[in-house]
């Protein structure tokens, strides 16, 4: 079942010098319910723009966007959005940060705190309820941010290079946690990254986006066994094969970009 659909979507912005800059042009993408899709592409190719369109933050010039059959207009609370930036509110304890989305929906204090405690336990944050974000490591902040969006049981999780600034070990641990989360809950995830290894290790399907203006160049079904662990899967011969194939197309895309004025 198609949960999310981008149909021939074009997005343009006014650039600083006054001309219009086309970020996406005729982009088609669909994500099925329960699927984990990764979008990769050269930096500045409009991956994040696509995500912002899907989250209702950016309105396309033309084309249709549908979530669960409904046209997307404005920000959707049923989308759980996790960006690269650290967006925990620094003046709130971790517990109250995790409870924030529930608070915005008017859930009573006692209930939301209880739910937040459960979510924190799920993300391995027990014992840090009363700490402030500045007291947490980068990885823990990310876990708290994930717990915060999980609180409202989103229809889809959209992650925009969520682990970008973290060190390799923390990153891999969090990737495994995403896999566990996805496997245990059956949620739908759209994951934007420029890290090909990460994309292949996590996804059911990798979508390669072209140089700007972004459109989908090709899609690659990832037929690696599940359940996966990043550490185990990335040394499989099939993994290397896939990586080479996608890397080759990505290189072509990059060169095409350099050739242009």
């Amino acid at each position: 079942m198609k949960l999310l659909e981008l149909n021939n979507v074009t997005v343009s912005f006014p650039s600083p010098d006054g001309t219009m800059l086309t970020a996406l042009e005729g982009m088609n993408l669909s994500v099925n319910k329960g699927e984990l899709v990764a979008m990769v592409g050269p930096s500045g190719c409009g991956k994040s723009t696509a995500l912002n369109v899907l989250a209702g933050q950016v309105t396309p010039v033309s084309g249709q966007v549908h979530l669960a059959g409904q046209p997307v207009e404005g920000i959707l609370p049923s989308v759980g959005y996790i960006s690269q930036a650290d967006t925990l509110l620094p003046w709130r304890t971790v517990l109250d940060n995790v409870a924030l989305a529930m608070e915005l929906r008017g859930m009573p204090k006692k209930e939301r705190r209880e739910a937040a405690r459960d979510l924190m336990a799920k993300m391995g944050l027990t014992g840090f309820e009363n700490n402030y974000p500045r007291e947490l490591s980068g990885g823990m902040k990310k876990r708290a941010a994930i717990a915060r969006v999980l609180a409202v049981d989103p229809a889809i999780l959209m992650m925009d290079e969520p682990f970008g600034p973290l060190d390799a070990l923390t990153k891999e641990k969090l990737q495994d946690e995403i896999l566990t989360l996805w496997e245990s809950t059956g949620c739908t995830i759209l994951y934007v990254t420029h890290d090909l290894t990460e994309a292949i290790a996590l996804a059911d399907r990798v979508v390669l986006v072209s140089q700007r203006p972004g459109r989908v160049v090709r899609e690659y079904p990832i037929d690696l066994p599940r359940p996966r662990r990043v550490m185990d899967v990335k040394f499989l011969p099939r993994f290397v094969e896939l990586e080479q194939a996608i890397w080759h197309d990505l290189q072509t895309e990059l060169r095409r970009g350099e050739g242009e004025p």
């Binding site: 989250a55 933050q57 920000i75 609370p77 989308v79 959005y81 960006s83 930036a85 650290d86 967006t87 509110l89 003046w91 709130r92 924030l100 989305a101 608070e103 915005l104 929906r105 915060r148 969006v149 409202v152």
Partner: peptide, 24 residues
């Protein structure tokens, strides 16, 4: 980013005012 994040979590204009701009 904080404002955007709270809006994406479903925060209204008023909630952004009360829960982000005011405490900041």
């Amino acid at each position: 980013e904080l404002i955007t994040a709270v809006k994406l979590l479903g925060g209204t204009r008023q909630q952004v005012m009360r829960k982000v701009i005011w405490p900041a």
